[in-house]
Write a protein that binds this DNA or RNA. Structure first.
Length: 280
DNA sequence: AGCGGGACCTGTGGGC
DNA sequence: TGCCCACAGGTCCCGC
């Protein structure tokens, strides 16, 4: 489900609910929602949440363990994949059909609250990590740079080779946080064809592409992300950027730039919409 | 190297 | 109304 703008929105709305709270208990309802590399989630009990951040599409909660040691976790990593969500709920609220994990939180004044990890398709993962676990996690170690903190000069050498440009953008090793929606939107805005060979972009193309990526992501964040079906932020609100899509989900409609019919095909295994006239 | 296909899951929407 | 198929915001793995 969520790409960078949605995860950013989730983290921003989640932070006031969880910062400085202590995790009193964890109830893992669906064992597969724990990442195979994770420390036991029960060992979270007693940890305080001292940070809420995003890296790519990952939600990161920084922890102060009750008993710091080599076997304790100091980072809770949550990958929402397609349908994961993080929802603050009243303490002892009944889990829903798709609730996979419940974190019981206690804030400074002593009020209890539950945090639900819901996930319809159960692709999402929760990982309680420390330094050595992160070092053993390839996805983490190979994750590309943040698109909002990089330059076109950083991007250029990452777009090597013969692979299709869109496939390169979807590869989290190239850039972190871009998914199917924002790949299509950024490629349209930069007038680059999704099947262009990644290594064929010159410096000017890279500048135009990165500018488009950053513009699309920032405009989406300003609208609290895109809500196609399931996505909601931690306050239960939907985003609005889906109303600003130029091409995503619009195969067969007219190109907003030139009026030609938008083409739909499959690139990198994903549904892809682009304008064959504008994008070269 | 890089692509396509399938796997992992559940739900929804369209066509008949 | 109901059934069946296609498809969905992500990633990994396999074979060609």
């Amino acid at each position: 489900m969520p790409e960078l703008p949605e995860v950013e929105t989730i983290v921003r709305t989640l932070a006031p609910h969880v910062l400085n709270a202590r995790i009193e208990a964890v109830n893992l309802l669906h064992p597969k929602s724990a990442h195979p590399l994770s420390l036991p989630l029960e060992s979270l009990a007693g940890s305080a949440i001292c940070g809420a951040r995003r890296r790519g599409k990952l939600v990161l909660l920084d922890l102060e363990p009750a008993k710091p040691g080599p076997d304790s976790g100091d980072l809770l990593v949550i990958h929402l994949r397609m349908t994961g969500s993080l929802l603050p709920r009243e303490h002892k609220a009944a889990p829903g059909k798709h609730t996979r994990c419940v974190f019981t939180l206690k804030d400074n004044p002593g009020n209890y609250q539950d945090l639900f990890f819901d996930d319809i398709r159960t692709f999402g993962k929760i990982l309680l990590a420390n330094k050595s676990i992160l070092e053993a996690w390839p996805f983490w170690n190979e994750l590309g740079p943040e698109p909002l903190e990089m330059s076109a000069a950083d991007l250029k050498p990452r777009l090597r080779g013969n692979r299709q440009l869109k496939a390169a953008l979807l590869d989290q090793k190239t850039i972190a946080g871009i998914g199917n929606i924002y790949a299509d939107e950024a490629l349209f805005q930069s007038r680059l064809h999704p099947c262009r060979k990644a290594g064929s972009l010159d410096a000017g193309d890279c500048e135009r592409l990165l500018a488009a990526i950053q513009d699309v992501l920032l405009r989406s964040i300003a609208q609290c992300g895109s809500s196609i079906r399931n996505y909601k932020d931690a306050d239960g609100n939907a985003g609005a950027f889906q109303n600003s899509f130029k091409v995503y989900g619009k195969g067969g409609e007219t190109c907003p730039a030139c009026g030609a019919a938008l083409q739909k095909s499959r690139v990198g295994g994903r549904a892809t919409v682009f304008c064959g006239a504008c994008q070269k």
